[in-house]
């Protein structure tokens, strides 16, 4: 298969401009609270650890996974798990799966491209579905998530493929994969007066690509106790 099926030069140009502007945008993101290596906060604690913000990354926009991650290369990605005759399709792996900084960069993109407005901080959902658990209607493999972002989805997910370079989408995929790792004590979901039992320490107190590492007792609509003891 050809590496690049696109022949529309204006689209290439637009994407090139997009890439350049993305680089500019991300370079302009202020450097705040530089912390070490994106270490996640320690585990289950009612008192929240200090915020963790992504380190500045000057190369973020120029990061390239060309040749391996383009949408064209993902045409074979199945959305359905049903394969007639038992003949399956191969899912392309994420090209950045070994890049430990990808999720941090993705977290920044998640804010910069207003993903956070619909899917909420830590992917809790609202206008769009939550990304904080394992429910992904269009598939939860990296290639599926990539395509959902690139192509959009019919119930309101915008198609970002014309705006975002592949590398930015793959970083978002890394972030989404990271925030979706909800603790999963059972196969299905039970809700009752005593379940769920936990909630995340809310995002105003902790900024991290691994929000499920910092949880507290479920508050039933009362104020989070995460800030107790840290009141100004």
């Amino acid at each position: 298969m050809a590496k690049n099926l696109r022949t529309d030069k204006s689209k290439d140009r637009r994407r090139a401009i997009g890439l350049a502007l993305l680089a500019l945008v991300l370079l302009l993101i202020p450097t705040r609270g530089a912390s070490a290596q994106g270490t996640p906060p320690p585990g289950v604690q009612p008192a929240a650890p200090p915020p963790i913000l992504p380190p500045p990354n000057a190369n973020i926009g120029a990061q390239s996974y060309s040749g391996s991650g383009g949408a064209a290369a993902l045409l074979g990605t199945p959305v359905s798990p049903l394969f007639p005759g038992g003949v399956g399709l191969a899912k392309a792996p994420a090209p950045n799966m070994n890049d430990k900084q990808a999720a941090l960069r993705g977290m920044q993109n998640f804010t910069s491209f207003n993903c956070v407005g619909c899917h909420a901080p830590n992917g809790g959902g609202g206008m769009g579905p939550s990304l904080s658990n394992r429910t992904f209607l269009y598939g939860h493999d990296p290639a599926n998530i990539y395509l959902s972002i690139y192509q959009g989805r019919p119930n309101g997910m915008p198609a970002w493929g014309g705006v975002l370079p592949d590398s930015a989408i793959w970083d978002l995929v890394a972030y989404i994969t990271s925030i979706s790792k909800a603790p999963s004590p059972q196969w299905g979901t039970t809700v009752s007066a005593t379940k769920p039992e936990i909630e995340q320490v809310p995002a105003q107190y902790v900024v991290t690509p691994r929000p499920w590492d910092a949880t507290e007792a479920f508050s039933n609509g009362r104020k989070s106790n995460a800030n107790f003891g840290r009141q100004p």
Binding site: A120, G125, S130, S132, T135, A182, E199, F218
Partner: peptide, 24 residues
């Protein structure tokens, strides 16, 4: 009524925090 996670308080522009137990 939608796929919104009650354990993530900042969801639904922050309303999740206040009604997270509604689906019970």
């Amino acid at each position: 009524n939608a796929e919104v996670d009650p354990r993530v308080r900042n969801g639904a522009l922050g309303f999740t925090g206040a009604t997270q137990d509604l689906s019970a």
